[in-house]
């Protein structure tokens, strides 16, 4: 498998639980990178803290495992100094939108060319199953034994209003969609957000009695629909999958290098 060429196999088998959706995301992402034909030296993967962020240790690219929630800040720095590199930032839902919420909206606002992959398993898995801002109302978690009372974000709406120029959602069940969407997100010039709904059978699944990993994946199949499909007419509660936003706006590092040229020109005139 050519996908095997992109991993650090000395760290395998990986740390994730049996049936964890993050492994499926890793699989789909490597497939996307392989299909794009990118070399290992062209990719920088920056991650924060959490189950999902362990992904940067398993891939054989340039990798940075940074502090909790601040992956986008580190990635912005890398992109500013080396704009020719492709930055991929795998994050968990808590890492991206609770601890790193501010970095997320401002990276989106700047439209800097980063690819943020948010693996949304709706729970803090690594620390023992506490509820996250993506858990939603009426969900059981180890810190909400009588169920949560707060509501969740819609990542797509948040990305849209923050100014992201590419936003898409898919699930671990739809593996071919993961690959095609990540490919588009990497090729997109500007800030791209890919939300992948992932399963945590160990905590989220067990505490909410959703069954094991493949039963949770069946739920993704049942509870989602492609944007524009007729299933909306039957059930309005279905979660939409697909590309929500794709538009062209001036990219931050391009604009910055133009600014540098103008400033250098002025300096030489003196």
């Amino acid at each position: 498998m050519p996908v095997q060429d992109y991993i650090r196999d000395r760290f395998f088998p990986h740390i994730w639980c049996p049936g964890c959706g993050h492994g499926i995301v890793l699989n789909g992402m490597l497939k996307a990178i392989e299909e794009l034909g990118l070399s290992k030296n062209e990719i920088v993967m920056v991650s924060g803290i959490g189950c999902s962020s362990r992904i940067s240790g398993y891939v054989d690219f340039h990798t940075l495992h940074t502090i909790h929630g601040r992956a986008l800040a580190f990635a912005s720095g890398v992109k500013m100094s080396r704009p020719e590199l492709n930055l991929i930032i795998p994050m968990g839902d808590g890492d991206a939108l609770a601890i790193g919420g501010n970095h997320f909206i401002h990276a989106a606002r700047r439209n800097i060319d980063l690819t943020a992959i948010i693996m949304n398993n709706r729970i803090y898995g690594m620390t023992g199953g506490q509820f996250s801002p993506l858990s939603g109302h009426g969900i059981k978690a180890s810190t909400a034994p009588y169920s949560t009372i707060d509501h969740d974000f819609d990542i797509m709406e948040l990305a849209k209003s923050a100014g992201a120029t590419f936003a898409a959602r898919t699930t671990t069940f739809h593996i071919k969609e993961i690959t095609s969407i990540i490919k588009k997100a990497i090729l997109h010039e500007g800030f791209s957000v890919v939300e992948i709904m992932s399963q945590c059978p160990t905590y989220f699944g067990k505490q909410n009695k959703l069954g094991n990993s493949f039963e949770m994946m069946e739920l993704f199949k049942k509870n989602t629909r492609k944007i524009g499909s007729n299933k909306k007419l039957e059930n309005k509660n279905l979660i939409e999958r697909g590309i929500f936003i794709q538009k062209e706006l001036p990219e931050y590092t391009n604009e910055y290098s133009k600014m540098v040229k103008i400033a250098m020109g002025k300096k030489n005139e003196r």
Binding site: V3, H22, I24, L26, N27, I175
Partner: peptide, 13 residues
């Protein structure tokens, strides 16, 4: 090849 694509552990080819 759905098994290969969906395997979270990259264990099937």
């Amino acid at each position: 090849r759905m098994c290969e694509l969906r395997c979270p552990d990259l264990a099937i080819e």
